[in-house]
Computed example of a mutant assay.
Amino acid sequence: MNDATDEYRVIITRKPVRNARMRVMPDGTVRITAPKGFNTARFIEEKRDWIRARQAEMDQLAAGCITVASDRMLLLGTGYSVREGSHCETDHCDTVITAPNPPALRQHLTNDFRSLITETVAIRADEMGVSPGRCAIRMQKTRWGSCSSAGNLNFNLKLYALPAHLMDYVVVHELAHLNVLNHSPAFWSLVATQYPEYKNAETDLRRYWVAIERNHWWNTIQK
């Protein structure tokens, strides 16, 4: 169910859960998961200050990131025009992407990104002395990437929106998990040997996540 206030949009999902949960999305939308009969109006009123604080945090993150026009797609850290055409093509010189429809655009970007990320993984894996397994590309909702206990890597297609140095950091991060599966001090020490500015990268990734979630074209192809 969709609802709205003067300040923000609210999406309410009724499920057989014990406690109500609330999240503020990057675009400011408030998502509530609540049991049947739960008073969501009162819940919203009680959390109004928290909601405003979270929305302000999202706005601040977005303000610290690149801003592209609403009709342009964030790709490789810059804005690309998207044009309708009979075939798919990316012109990196003129920053133009051509595709007949959103599903074709998503597949085209997946194919392009697979080649790019595979090359980056190969270079970094050689430098780090590790041997990853399969490398899959998915449109993930909460993670930039993941590494399984079997050594297989998953990368979010949204990484294609990032500038090259942040994409490189995510690769280093996931490859480091081949040696240390958790996020212990030993893991971060290993990451630091390959990417000393990892703390800055983590901050920038949060900013870009908000920017990507607010981008029209990324929202269009993930539906």
Results as ranks from 00 to 15, higher is better:
residue 96 V to R: 06
residue 171 V to S: 01
residue 131 S to M: 11
residue 10 V to P: 00
residue 128 M to V: 04
residue 213 E to I: 00
residue 162 L to W: 02
residue 84 E to C: 12
residue 79 G to Y: 09
residue 69 A to F: 04
residue 188 W to K: 08
residue 27 D to T: 10
residue 200 N to I: 12
residue 44 I to P: 03
residue 35 P to L: 09
residue 163 P to Q: 10
residue 170 V to F: 02
residue 107 Q to Y: 05
residue 219 N to Y: 05
residue 113 F to M: 05
residue 192 A to L: 01
residue 149 S to K: 10
residue 217 W to T: 03
residue 200 N to L: 13
residue 70 S to L: 07
residue 216 H to W: 11
residue 178 L to R: 05
residue 72 R to N: 12
residue 112 D to K: 11
residue 146 S to G: 08
residue 42 R to F: 06
residue 20 A to M: 12
residue 137 I to A: 06
residue 15 K to L: 15
residue 124 R to A: 11
residue 134 R to Y: 04
residue 27 D to Q: 10
residue 38 F to P: 01
residue 103 P to T: 07
residue 2 N to H: 13
residue 58 M to G: 00
residue 24 V to W: 06
residue 141 K to R: 15
residue 46 E to F: 09
residue 61 L to K: 15
residue 168 D to G: 05
residue 136 A to M: 12
residue 49 D to W: 08
residue 153 L to I: 04
residue 5 T to A: 09
residue 2 N to I: 14
residue 74 L to V: 06
residue 143 R to Q: 13
residue 22 M to R: 04
residue 98 T to L: 12
residue 200 N to G: 07
residue 82 V to A: 08
residue 73 M to Q: 07
residue 24 V to G: 10
residue 35 P to M: 06
residue 165 H to Q: 14
residue 12 I to N: 02
residue 211 A to K: 03
residue 67 T to R: 15
residue 119 E to V: 06
residue 94 D to T: 12
residue 182 N to K: 05
residue 203 T to H: 13
residue 128 M to Y: 08
residue 192 A to P: 03
residue 139 M to E: 04
residue 16 P to L: 06
residue 140 Q to F: 01
residue 140 Q to C: 04
residue 168 D to L: 03
residue 131 S to N: 13
residue 67 T to E: 14
residue 147 C to H: 04
residue 215 N to A: 07
residue 219 N to T: 10
residue 65 C to E: 02
residue 55 Q to Y: 04
residue 217 W to F: 12
residue 23 R to P: 01
residue 117 I to H: 06
residue 196 P to T: 07
residue 107 Q to F: 06
residue 134 R to I: 02
residue 175 L to I: 03
residue 47 K to Q: 15
residue 61 L to E: 08
residue 23 R to V: 06
residue 1 M to F: 07
residue 34 A to E: 04
residue 135 C to V: 15
residue 25 M to N: 12
residue 73 M to D: 05
residue 182 N to H: 11
residue 50 W to H: 09
residue 205 L to M: 12
residue 55 Q to F: 00
residue 116 L to N: 05
residue 101 N to V: 01
residue 146 S to M: 02
residue 1 M to T: 08
residue 88 C to V: 08
residue 152 N to E: 13
residue 91 D to Q: 10
residue 86 S to H: 08
residue 78 T to H: 09
residue 56 A to L: 12
residue 120 T to V: 06
residue 29 T to Q: 13
residue 17 V to I: 15
